[in-house]
């Protein structure tokens, strides 16, 4: 690793931290914009149902809502960095505990789904480009158009009805077979915990329950990757260096999958974080439909119960995960593309 690359990574990390601070501030300010007075804010914090004046005052005091805005923002930021996301009014537990429970489950869905959609997208995109305008290309286009353009809940419902209710191949709802005993919570990630406990049955049951949601999220997000891969493959395949590769006597197939795909995959990396965001947004709907109790399900629960603390907390946690994904993508980009480091 050379020093330019290290500098690049450091700069990107600083950017990531700055972005994070910005996000927290923005989210906090947005809420203030819609609930300008401390009392209104306290009502948002308290959630639905009747809250007495003294309870509201207690909330104002607890969250220091009377302080000047910049102080509140700083306060909020420092709370977040201390892992304090507030106290959930409907679960009566600290928010961070709830998120700590639900986030790993969602990551277990989203990360495989992301891999699935990346691979599917890269492959179908490259395939479509190499078969440009022929039947194969049209089929690829048809498939990604339909999955992209269908409302996310339709895709999920279709998978559920078809594979679970009609064919009985996979479970329709839930996180795991409820009859099974939960292994000891060590990492928070159910799959890992099952492995650590050596509980194979539990592990398999988890996987069984994961398949449909993972496929659903993957299908919802691969279209954008296919589309960009195809487009940038076509650009690369018209480039002089691709043609010089052929000119040297490399076979077209090899040139397509090494020279063109290698170059075309560089812009795809920048999509990684975006796709991760899509996948998380997809998880909201998918988890709701499959009653998979992860972050997405939790958000929907929070919406129906107007549990604002929960929504705020999840939003920020999701932003943090996406910023991390973004940072990873940036670094990968720097490694993949020799031209980046000099910028």
């Amino acid at each position: 690793m050379n020093s330019a690359l290290i500098l690049y990574i450091i700069r990107r990390t600083i950017y990531a931290v700055v972005s994070l601070l910005f996000i927290i501030t923005i989210v906090y300010l947005l809420i203030h914009a819609v609930a300008p007075s401390p009392l209104a804010l306290a009502k948002v914090y308290a959630g639905p149902g009747h809250t007495s004046k003294s309870q509201l005052l207690a909330i104002i005091k607890e969250y220091d809502l009377n302080a000047p805005l910049p102080n509140q923002v700083l306060n909020y930021i420092s709370n977040i960095f201390h892992g304090n996301l507030g106290f959930d009014p409907s679960f009566h537990r600290p928010e961070i505990d709830l998120i700590g429970r639900y986030l790993p489950r969602t990551l277990e869905l989203v990360i495989p789904a992301l891999l699935f959609s990346m691979l599917l997208g890269l492959y179908t995109g490259a395939f479509g480009a190499s078969k440009r305008r022929k039947a194969g290309d049209q089929v690829v286009k048809g498939v990604y158009l339909v999955t992209w353009a269908s409302p996310p809940f339709l895709v999920a419902i279709f998978l559920q009805v078809f594979f679970a209710y009609d064919l009985h191949l996979l479970p329709a709802t839930g996180l795991v077979n409820p009859v099974l005993l939960t292994p000891k919570d060590v990492t928070g990630f159910p799959l890992l915990d099952a492995l650590i406990a050596g509980d194979f049955t539990y592990f398999v049951s988890l996987i069984h329950h994961m398949i449909l949601p993972v496929v659903a999220i993957g299908l919802l997000s691969f279209g954008i990757i296919t589309r960009l891969t195809r487009a940038s493959m076509l650009d690369t395949m018209e480039s002089e260096y691709f043609k010089l590769g052929l000119m040297k006597g490399i076979s077209r197939k090899r040139a397509v999958y090494t020279v063109a795909l290698r170059n075309a995959s560089i812009p795809i990396v920048t999509l990684l974080a975006l796709t991760f965001g899509y996948a998380v947004a997809g998880a909201v709907v998918v988890e709701d439909i499959f009653s998979y109790h992860g972050m997405g399900w939790f958000i929907v629960y929070a919406i129906t119960n107007l549990d604002y603390i929960a929504i705020l907390g999840t939003t920020i946690i999701i932003a943090i995960s996406i910023i991390i994904a973004n940072l990873a993508a940036d670094i990968l980009y720097g490694v993949l593309d020799p031209r980046v480091k000099l910028e």
């Binding site: 996000i23 965001g277 958000i299 604002y308 910023i323 973004n326």
Partner: peptide, 23 residues
């Protein structure tokens, strides 16, 4: 651009949810 990137870091769906509940 930092501001833009920050906004981009939250999926639109989730940010809208966060904003539109109080709205």
């Amino acid at each position: 651009m930092r501001l833009t990137d920050s906004f981009l870091a939250i999926p639109a769906l989730i940010l809208v949810i966060a904003i539109s509940i109080p709205l």
